[in-house]
């Protein structure tokens, strides 16, 4: 056990920084996945259920196999399966994607809680982090710079998607399918398979996001694990105006703002903690209000998206 000196006020920016890295990863992975899905013209509101199902499946698999990465893979596959369900059902005529999403949220949550009952108590092997803070003698900085590979994968993915949407063939195809099914058909693109695939990928990433929660931070499985991260991540995609890089900033912002409350309390500022804890929501709304204007509602929105279609 090490004796640690308190950081004092430096703890607040450090906590926000560290919190941004620790807490943002599920938001990042889920929002990038949803970004792909929404670019194809569908919205999957069920990612909250997918995330929870992924968290449970990942934890259970890690426990059973002894490999946390096997857990991550299992979480992704379970997520992909739920994505496939969403993708297929929404391909039926007249079926509303938002409604199916809400149903899948309920189904995924219920199934995860049902099957996850025996997983609350045992300890599963966790994902390891890369100690980027090795150069520092401060344990706080060392801890803050414990970075999980999934976070790095998320960053790389955001950059790759940013370019892929613009400059690659499949990125263009995805966007055309999402902007106008008629135009896509005219160009000979396969609309439904593209959308189903986009939803499957979105589900996979959301499942992995869930595995991050159960296998790294906070690193446990229980029924209170997700406090709406999945649904917030879907909202962040709209906030980020369907731009992968903006999803990254939005996730970091949200994660960092979430660390503000606990960090201030650790300093001894304990009154009004409910209001500090609401900081991520206030901040996000504030930015939306400040940057929005009546004419820019739909800037960047895929044309076929039911959520924003007017």
């Amino acid at each position: 056990m090490v004796a640690v000196d308190g950081l004092g006020w430096w703890g607040v920016p450090l906590a926000i920084f560290a919190g941004a890295i620790r807490v943002s990863t599920p938001y990042l992975l889920v929002s990038l996945g949803e970004c792909i899905t929404e670019k194809s013209g569908r919205i999957n509101l069920g990612l909250e259920g997918v995330l929870i199902m992924g968290a449970m499946a990942g934890y259970g698999t890690s426990l059973a196999t002894g490999s946390a990465w096997a857990g991550v893979l299992a979480a992704g596959l379970v997520g992909a399966l739920l994505g496939l369900l969403h993708g297929l059902l929404c391909s039926l005529r007249r079926v509303n994607d938002i409604a199916i999403g809400i149903s899948i949220m309920l189904f995924g949550t219920g199934l995860a809680f049902f099957l996850g009952k025996p997983l609350v108590q045992p300890q599963a092997p966790m994902l390891n982090a890369i100690p980027f803070g090795f150069w520092s003698s401060s344990p706080q900085i060392q801890s803050a710079l414990q970075i999980n590979p999934l976070f790095l994968i998320g960053i790389v993915l955001a950059v790759v998607l940013h370019y892929a949407f613009r400059y690659t063939r499949w990125g263009m195809q995805l966007r055309i399918v999402g902007d106008s099914a008629d135009a896509a058909l005219a160009l000979g693109l396969r609309v439904l398979p593209t959308r189903i695939l986009a939803t499957v990928i979105g589900g996979f990433l959301a499942g992995v996001g869930g595995a991050f929660l159960s296998l790294y931070y906070p690193g446990s499985w229980n029924e209170g694990l997700s406090s709406g991260q999945g649904i917030i991540a879907v909202a962040l995609v709209i906030f980020a105006r369907w731009e992968p890089l903006r999803c990254l900033w939005a996730s970091l912002l949200f994660g960092g703002a979430g660390a503000l409350g606990p960090a201030l309390q650790a300093m001894g500022i304990t009154s009004g903690y409910y209001l500090f804890n609401a900081a991520p929501y206030v901040l996000t709304l504030g930015i939306l209000i400040a940057t929005g204007s009546p004419s820019r509602t739909l800037a960047g929105a895929p044309g076929e998206l039911s959520l924003v279609r007017n």
């Binding site: 640690v4 000196d5 906590a15 560290a18 620790r22 406090s227 979430g258 606990p262 309390q265």
Partner: peptide, 24 residues
């Protein structure tokens, strides 16, 4: 002391634990 605001908030509890440890 850190109050998380509710009885089961795993992410907030982990953040609180890290915050307290960072403060020594």
């Amino acid at each position: 002391v850190i109050f998380t605001g509710d009885w089961s908030m795993p992410v907030k509890e982990a953040e609180a634990a890290n915050g307290l440890i960072d403060q020594g």
